[in-house]
């Protein structure tokens, strides 16, 4: 049994607990013992991306304390995992006492599909999901963590799932954290282009590795009264 600490992320905790529950089931199915360190809150990405690095450092310090001893930290979010991996060492570059810890925690932090495929070597989780599904590769997972084949391999192994390609899949959905509020109309235009491709794909379900992008996409689909549903990859992998 592989021990992992789940970093569920703030959005999942309060808005999409079912994604967290699914992630737990999937990890357990893959042979992990899941712990949930209850002192966790938020990785600080929202503040960091908006330029508030002092505030981000406070949250990052908290994260480092909470997960200092975790053997592996797994998050159902490419952007949060990328925040820890890419930017924590940057945030503490002038604090030698914390830099080593930041690097060490960074090296132990993974996005869910990344952990399943790259670390555990698992692609088939015995899931069944009878629907037509397309996949939006979230930017930070795709270009930050280099996740291309991992999520697709997992989807391909799901029984009864019909996979369809998403046109221009690698285009950003326009979320970008506070960007979606500051530049709401621009973000909306980018979203609209993404929704057009999702609807054109013929999928009944669009999936991704990040609830942030999915919150954006599902908000747009719901405003359009579209029949396409947005589900996190973990929810599909937990299907049986």
């Amino acid at each position: 049994m592989k021990p992992v600490a789940l970093f569920v992320t703030c959005l999942v905790d309060q808005l999409y607990p079912r994604v967290g529950e699914a992630a737990v089931r999937v990890l357990e199915r893959a042979g992990c013992t899941v712990a949930f360190p209850e002192e966790q809150t938020c990785c600080g990405q929202a503040a960091f991306n908006n330029g508030f690095q002092e505030e981000a450092r406070v949250l990052a310090r908290r994260f480092l304390d909470v997960f200092a001893d975790a053997p592996a930290i797994v998050a159902p979010s490419g952007s949060c995992a990328d925040m820890v991996r890419e930017w924590y060492p940057h945030l503490f570059r002038d604090a030698p006492a914390l830099l080593d810890l930041a690097r060490s925690v960074a090296s132990r932090t993974f996005e869910l599909s990344e952990y399943l495929v790259r670390v555990l070597g698992v692609t088939d989780l015995g899931a069944r999901f009878p629907a037509t599904v397309t996949y939006h590769p979230s930017c930070h997972g795709l270009r930050g963590l280099g996740l291309r084949d991992e999520p697709l391999g997992l989807l391909r192994a799901v029984r009864d799932l019909r996979f369809v390609e998403l046109p221009a899949a690698e285009q950003c959905c326009g979320f970008g954290g506070f960007f979606s509020i500051k530049f709401a109309a621009l973000s909306g235009a980018m979203l609209s282009a993404k929704l057009d491709t999702i609807e054109a794909s013929g999928a009944e379900v669009v999936t991704a590795t990040d609830v942030s992008c999915l919150m954006h996409i599902s908000g747009g689909l719901s405003r359009r009264c579209s029949r396409v549903r947005a589900l996190h990859l973990a929810e599909i992998l937990a299907g049986s």
Binding site: N49, C139, Q171, C172
Partner: peptide
Amino acid sequence: LPFVSTLCRA
């Protein structure tokens, strides 16, 4: 200007 990006890294 620095804020008008989703940091998508394309």
